[in-house]
Simulated scan of single mutants.
Amino acid sequence: MELKNVTLEEAKDGIEHNRLYFLYLYGTNCSVCHALLPQVEDVLKDFPQITQEKLNVHEIPEAAGAFSVFTIPVLLLYVNGKESIREARFVNIESFRSSLKRIVTLLD
Rank of each mutant, 00 (worst) to 15 (best):
N18K: 10
T71W: 02
K12N: 15
Y26L: 08
L25C: 09
V6F: 07
Y24E: 05
V74T: 13
V79M: 10
L55N: 05
K54Q: 13
Q49V: 13
N80D: 15
K82E: 14
N56L: 08
C30N: 10
M1Q: 10
L76C: 06
L77P: 06
E62N: 07
K45G: 10
R86M: 09
L44K: 04
H34P: 02
G27I: 05
T7H: 10
N29D: 14
E9F: 12
T28N: 05
F96R: 01
E87I: 04
L20C: 03
K101N: 13
N92L: 13
F67P: 14
Y24T: 03
N92F: 07
N92G: 10
A88E: 12
L36F: 12
H17K: 09
T105E: 14
S31C: 06
Y78C: 01
Q52M: 11
F96W: 11
V32Q: 08
I103P: 14
E41I: 03
L77D: 09
I85T: 08
L23P: 07
R19L: 08
V32I: 15
A63S: 11
K82W: 05
I93H: 01
N80Y: 09
F90R: 05
L37P: 04
E9W: 15
V104C: 03
G65R: 07
R97P: 10
T7M: 02
V91P: 11
L76A: 06
L100I: 05
D42Y: 12
K12E: 15
S95R: 00
M1G: 13
R19M: 00
H58V: 12
V79N: 01
Y21Q: 04
I103W: 08
L25P: 08
V57L: 07
I50M: 08
E59V: 03
V43A: 14
E62R: 00
S99Y: 12
K82Y: 12
L25Y: 07
V91M: 04
P48A: 02
A11K: 01
P48H: 03
L55K: 01
Y78K: 01
Y78G: 10
C33A: 09
S98T: 13
I103T: 03
F67V: 07
S98P: 10
L77Q: 04
Q52K: 15
F96E: 03
G65S: 05
E87C: 07
G27R: 00
E53L: 00
F47I: 05
V57E: 06
Y21K: 01
N18S: 13
S84W: 02
A66W: 08
V91D: 13
P73K: 01
R89S: 15
D13A: 08
G27D: 10
Q39C: 01
Q49K: 07
L106Y: 12
N18D: 03
P61E: 02
N56M: 02
D108V: 04
L8C: 02
N29A: 08
T105D: 09
R89I: 07
R19H: 14
K4W: 03
S95L: 02
Y24K: 04
D42M: 11
L25N: 06
V43N: 11
F96I: 00
N92S: 11
G14A: 06
V91F: 09
F90Q: 10
E62C: 13
P48C: 11
S98W: 12
L75M: 13
C33G: 06
K12R: 10
C33E: 08
V57P: 06
A88I: 01
T28M: 00
K45Y: 11
K54T: 09
P73V: 02
A63E: 06
I93R: 03
I93G: 12
H58T: 15
D13K: 13
S95I: 02
T7Y: 05
V74K: 01
